[in-house]
Design a protein around this nucleic acid. Structure first.
Lengths: 225, 225
DNA sequence: TGACATTTGTCCGTATGTATA
DNA sequence: CTATACATACGGACAAATGTC
């Protein structure tokens, strides 16, 4: 897939500073010659860069490189992709019979089996978020505690070969209770963000339901027109 | 622009229930014949529908209609587009000399003039959010209090003819202070969401800076892969 | 202010690749 | 294995907006 390679190449040049924020990109015709592809193929790469917030353009004008705050922090991006030195501390891990509520969320029959786990995610060894996750056993028959050391999104896509279609998020402010405060080494009644994720595969099959409590109390998001 | 018309047509059919969620769409070749356009043009319409979360597809499979929770609630969408019966109560409206902080946010010289206003946004006459907004006078020379009855985003795009490029959002949980609690007819120390918006035009010119306090304490977001 | 070259946006037709069912 | 459907790629043409002279 040529356009993906071009997309990756330009993206990397933006990330490592070869292309500088606010400056303009070469024109489409120049770039298409440089990469030896048709203009339409190049435009596909540009399109992907645009929807992910790396560049922007306007009819008649040039294409411009966006600064980092325009493309950092996407919802459907694991913590380990956003931050370095991410480690996990597993609090619980069980195979359970789904409660009525969980079965309804996953749109599955009453006797469905789920994996349920809780973990603390640390950045530079400092607790950053608490995570409670449910996944259906049927989709992940070989799931085990070992996976929890890394990224769940990576496991779904790379190890299992599933393709993620959507992530539905719900963000709310909450006050830490005693249990959470202890886990996150913070104080009771501290304000934090709770982010619910519903990660869907093709045909809207729910693959993962996660509730995160983030003590950084900040969620950045960029929307591109 | 043919593809925009096709996009609008399909979008409307999804919104009014002619196309039912979870069901599949006609194939690209059928649709392109139906609308009498080339397949590439149709794909442009489909692409827009996809990035906005209305449909999803997979190579070799069919295209499927998404349920409402996949496409509702985008950041760069005014409250009046999300909800019906939105009214505004203006608390303050002034023309000010920008403080150091505001001038820095807008990347403007120290003696720049800004409009500053506060308003309460009500849904069905019930207070929903408090809003504090700054806009540079230079970009909006004809700005006046009348505009505040409606949507600021609509004013920027429709009345002024500017094109919005990005919205950078920062979401945080906060506790209502006495003043906010009074305005929002709520209680002090109630948890709410604070959403900062930075609305950019082409070439990354900051057009609007807004701080919203939303007592619904919920922000939904859908991300499409 | 106005004319012009440049650049991105839109559209078409065709061909081939590849995953799905 | 086969037919179907979406994905990728090419090349050409014109429209529309921008920036410049």
């Amino acid at each position: 897939m040529k356009y993906i390679e071009i997309y990756e190449d330009i993206k990397n040049k933006i990330l490592n500073g070869e292309y500088v924020a606010w400056k303009n990109l070469e024109s489409e015709s120049v770039l298409s010659q440089k990469y030896s592809v048709s203009r339409m193929t190049l435009r596909q790469a540009i399109n992907k860069l645009k929807t992910e917030g790396y560049v922007h353009s306007r009819q008649g004008g040039n294409m411009y490189i966006n600064p980092p705050e325009f493309y950092r922090n996407k919802l459907l991006q694991s913590l380990s992709e956003k931050e370095k030195n991410v480690t996990s501390k597993i609090i619980s891990f069980e195979k359970i019979l789904g409660t009525k509520e969980i079965c309804e969320i996953f749109n599955r029959t009453k006797d469905s089996i789920f994996y349920k786990y809780e973990r603390i995610r640390l950045i530079d060894s400092i607790p950053r978020m608490y995570e409670l996750t449910y996944i259906p056993e049927e989709l992940f028959p070989n799931f085990n505690e070992e996976v929890l050391k890394g990224s769940m999104l990576g496991y779904i896509e790379k190890k299992c070969g599933y393709k993620i279609s959507h992530d539905l998020g719900k963000i709310q402010g909450i006050l830490l209770d005693k249990k959470l405060a202890k886990y996150l080494k913070s104080k009771e009644n501290q304000v934090a963000l709770q982010i619910e994720h519903k990660v869907y595969l093709y045909k809207s099959v729910l693959a993962e339901y996660t509730k995160e409590i983030d003590i950084s109390n900040t969620f950045d998001i960029a929307i591109v027109r």
